[in-house]
Design a protein around this nucleic acid. Structure first.
Length: 259
DNA sequence: AAGGACGACAACCGCAGATCG
DNA sequence: TCGATCTGCGGTTGTCGTCCT
């Protein structure tokens, strides 16, 4: 069987995806779906091969992706399933909603396999217990992955309900649970950024989470991107520019203020 | 402070099965 | 039925950030 050529085509870009490319891919799939991955990049105007687009979408941009560190239960599940399934990452991923095979594979190779080796000779329960100690602090990840339609607006959520009590705000907030308030991007106006800043000032524990197409971006109290979208890839300014750029394509927004 | 070592994770590669004409 | 193409999967690599000396 002759293999179809793919990325060896000249002129196709490789390497890390830029926020602009992500935006193009998200927008295109929201509008047209992804019936044919090979044809998609050309139709969407991306200088990527279809394979690269598919990987980026399935492993990172898909709306139902759950970002953030693995929970104790998830790690236990991976260990248990790996015992019976072996390196069947896709099968393991099927039992862990919101997690991708690539992500699970990475976690296995970077955390769990190492731990198994280190705990060789110990009881299995000790092994499982040890996973708890290595947990890192992480920003919250909402379980309510947004159910976006193709034209649906982005959402900004904050863990600080008090942030929405500021007078003069035109943000239309919606209670999603007792801890999270969602804000439709279409309701964001010139008060948006100052709203974020004032909300931040109102609470030392305030974290801001921008959710676009199921992709999460977290900002700490200094408005620095702390996890989620593009973690380790984009600097804070690039993140802010990206999200602001995304917002401004969904609604007419004022100039991004100086932080 | 510099730079080497290491860890984490996004992305790529290539194979194999599925699908289609 | 067969060959071409597409898609999914697992292994591997590359890059960036952090830690350590």
């Amino acid at each position: 069987m002759v293999r179809a050529p793919c990325c060896e085509k000249m002129g196709l870009k490789k390497g890390p995806w830029t926020p602009e490319e992500d935006l193009v891919l998200i927008n295109y799939i929201h509008l047209h779906g992804h019936g044919n991955w090979r044809a998609l990049p050309k139709q969407a105007g991306l200088l990527r091969c279809g394979k690269s687009c598919r990987l980026r979408w399935t492993n990172y941009l898909r709306p139902d992706i759950k970002r953030g560190n693995f929970t104790r239960e998830e790690e236990d599940t991976i260990i248990n399933l790996h015992e019976t399934l072996g390196n069947k990452w896709s099968a393991i991923a099927a039992r862990l909603p919101g997690r991708t095979d690539n992500e699970i594979k990475n976690v296995w190779h970077t955390h769990l396999k190492k731990r198994l080796k280190h705990n060789h000779g110990s009881s299995r329960q000790q092994l499982l217990d040890s996973s708890k100690d290595l947990k890192k602090q992480q920003p919250p990840v909402t379980a309510d992955s947004p159910q976006h339609s193709s034209s649906e607006a982005s959402t900004l959520t904050t863990s600080d309900n008090n942030s929405n009590s500021n007078s003069g705000s035109t943000m239309n907030t919606t209670e999603t649970n007792e801890d999270v308030v969602s804000v439709s991007v279409s309701e964001i106006d010139e008060n948006f950024w100052s709203e974020v800043l004032s909300a931040d000032n109102s609470s030392m524990t305030a974290d801001f989470q921008v959710v676009v197409g199921g992709t999460h971006q977290y900002f700490n109290s200094s408005l620095e991107a702390v996890n989620g979208y593009g973690s380790g890839v984009y600097d804070t300014d690039a993140n802010m520019d990206f999200w602001y750029n995304l917002f401004t394509r969904a609604a007419d927004l004022p100039e991004l203020p100086e932080f």
